[in-house]
Every structure is written in C-alpha cells, then in structure tokens.
Design a protein around this nucleic acid. Structure first.
Length: 199
DNA sequence: TCAATGATGGGCT
DNA sequence: GCCCATCATTGAC
C-alpha cells in the first residue's frame, strides 16, 4: 500500500474530489485496521462558496481549511454525527473535500461491530455512517493523511468513464454547483434520494 | 417503498 | 437563539 505524494493533495478542492475516487481511506485504532475505497465525495472551496465552512473566513473551526493540504478536517454536526474532509490546496488556498461514502474493504468485522449493522451496504454509505464505522471523531482532526494512523493510500484510479458528477447533497446554499463526484454503478452511495436525482 | 420526524451538541451572529 | 455538509425510526400507502 503506497502513500500518495504531497502534490496529489495540493490541488483545488474540485479537482481533488474527483481524484480521490478509487483511493483507499484507512484508520488504525488500538491495533485494529479498517478502511475502504472512496466512492463518493463533495468539494467545498473558500470565500466564493456559501455552503463551505470556510465561506466566512478562517474562524477557529474552519481555519484548518486555510492551512496545508493533505490533512484531515473532522467536524461534528446535527448533534450526533461526525464528518471527515480532506483539506485541499493549492498552497494556503482554502478548500476541502467531504468524503461521503466508502466501499468497505478492510476490517469489516470491526465496522459491523461499531455500526451494529450486518449489511455491508449500510456500513459506510454516508458521511456520518463511515465515521461511526471507522471510529473517527474530533480527536482525528488535523491528522496528516499521508503519515498517521488515519491515512489515504493509492488505490486504482478511476477513468473518466467511471465517474459521474451532480449537485451536492444536504445543503441549502449553492445547490446548483455539480461538485459531488461518485463512481458510476456503485452499490455504496449515501442518500437514497441522491441516487434517484442523479441517474 | 417513501415521506416525515426527533435526537442532540457545537459553532457562529 | 438559530443553524447545520445526518441518521434511524416511524407510520402511511
């Protein structure tokens, strides 16, 4: 399993969102490893994107999006869910990519235990679900995704023919931007409604 | 099968 | 005090 080069992450969020499809997210906690192929992402940029946490400038929470690319940005929402993002570049340009869904490939038993669900399709098919399945919470915020226990390694890159895009989900601003990217034909998408809208 | 709804807590104005 | 980049459960068809 090969680590990705720094320059892989040091690109604008929209470009990184597409490139992350097919790469593998891995988390090791207390000796147990789990992870999966990234099959769905969303791009969030900076000041020009009202749906982005960075839209109002580098607040205490969002300032990590203004820092170096290739680190994790984890936040807590709706009172009970965590979401993982990958900070994008280039340089200090604000931006991040939300990881919306994984195809579980490593450590399924541990994820089933944490999620209390038996179906593989229910383990990581949503940003909150995959964090719960992989044991990701605020303590992973700011970790280096190239060299820590939470990392992204090289998988098989997808060809353009395998990638589709559409509007982002679950937001109320800038819903017209086609900044959601996903693998065509995957069984592991997040929202049901999303599948209907974008086919 | 699908729409409606409650749980629940931190960040920001 | 209000807003949320969510999920599981409920109850109607």
């Amino acid at each position: 399993m090969k680590a990705l080069p720094k320059k892989f992450f040091d690109v604008p969020a929209v470009e990184l969102a597409r490139k992350l499809l097919g790469q593998v997210l891995i988390h090791k906690s207390s000796g147990v490893v789990c992870g999966g192929r990234i099959v769905e992402t969303e791009a969030y940029t900076g000041l020009g994107d009202p749906a982005s946490h960075a839209a109002r400038g580098p607040t205490p929470r969002a300032k990590i999006m203004f820092g170096p690319s290739g680190v994790a940005y984890v936040y807590f929402t709706y009172g009970c869910h965590h979401c993982v993002n990958v900070v994008a570049g280039p340089g200090a340009e604000p931006g991040a990519v939300l990881i919306r869904a994984l195809e579980p490939t490593i450590g399924l038993a541990g994820m089933i235990k944490r999620r209390k669900k038996n179906k593989v399709e229910d383990l990581c098919s949503g940003p909150g679900k995959l964090c719960q399945a992989m044991g990701i919470d605020l303590s992973q915020n700011g970790w280096d995704l190239r060299n820590s226990d939470l990392k992204i390694v090289a998988g098989a890159a997808l060809s353009d023919a395998q990638v589709a895009s559409g509007p982002r989900i679950g937001i109320s601003k800038a819903t017209d931007l086609p900044w959601r990217f996903y693998e065509k034909g995957s069984r592991f998408y997040s929202a049901r409604s999303a599948v209907h809208k974008t086919v």
